[in-house]
Simulated scan of single mutants.
Amino acid sequence: MLGQALGVSDEWIDVFVGTRTRHFARDLATGEVRASLADLCAEAGAKALAATGLDAADIEFLVLATATPDRLLPTTAAQVADRLGLDHLPAYQLQSGCSGALQAVELGAALLGAGAGAGLVIGGDVTHRHLDLRPGAGRLPGRELVNYVLFGDGAGAAVLTAEPAGERVAVRNIVHRLTGLGRAPGQLLDWYGISDRESDRPMLAEDYKAIEEQVPQMAAQLLWALLAETGWQPEDVHYLLPPQLSRRMTERITQRLTLPCAQEISCVADTGNTGNALPFLQMERLFDVMAQGERALVLSVESSKWIEAGLGLERL
Rank of each mutant, 00 (worst) to 15 (best):
L94T: 06
D87Q: 14
A67H: 06
S99R: 00
T75V: 09
G100T: 02
L102F: 08
Y92F: 15
A65S: 14
V63T: 04
V80A: 14
G100L: 02
P90N: 08
V80L: 07
P69R: 00
T76S: 13
L54D: 08
S99P: 01
L62N: 06
D82V: 07
A65R: 03
S99G: 01
A57M: 06
V63I: 10
E60H: 05
L72Q: 15
T68N: 09
A77L: 06
A78Q: 13
Q95H: 14
A65T: 09
A91E: 06
D58P: 00
D70K: 08
D82S: 14
L102N: 01
A56M: 12
G85D: 12
A77N: 05
R71V: 11
C98P: 00
A104S: 10
I59K: 08
G97M: 10
Y92A: 08
T75D: 04
I59T: 03
P69M: 10
L73H: 15
L86N: 03
D70N: 08
G100A: 10
P74D: 05
L94G: 00
Q103Y: 11
T68Y: 09
L94W: 06
A77Q: 12
T76A: 12
L64Q: 04
T68L: 11
D82N: 03
D87N: 13
L89Q: 05
R71K: 12
R83W: 03
D58Y: 05
Y92Q: 00
Q95T: 14
A56R: 15
A67N: 00
A78Y: 03
D55L: 11
A65K: 02
G97R: 06
T66S: 12
S99H: 11
P74W: 06
A77G: 04
A81Y: 02
A81T: 02
L73E: 13
L73S: 11
L64W: 07
C98A: 13
A56V: 09
L89I: 10
C98V: 10
L64V: 06
D55K: 14
G85N: 12
L94K: 02
T68A: 13
A77I: 07
T68C: 09
L94Q: 06
T76M: 05
Q93S: 05
L64T: 04
A57R: 13
A81F: 03
G100E: 01
L86T: 03
P74T: 05
G97T: 06
A101P: 01
D70L: 11
A67E: 10
A91T: 12
I59F: 04
A67P: 00
Y92L: 12
A91R: 08
P69C: 08
E60K: 01
Q79L: 12
D55I: 02
A78W: 01
A77H: 04
A91M: 05
S96F: 14
Q93I: 08
L89A: 10
G100M: 00
T75N: 09
H88V: 00
L89G: 05
L84V: 03
G85Y: 14
G100C: 02
Q103G: 15
T75I: 04
C98N: 09
V63G: 01
P90I: 02
D58E: 14
Q95S: 14
T66K: 04
V63Q: 03
V63H: 00
E60F: 03
D82Y: 11
P69E: 07
T76K: 00
F61W: 08
L62F: 02
F61M: 05
Q103N: 13
R83K: 15
D55N: 15
A56S: 13
E60I: 04
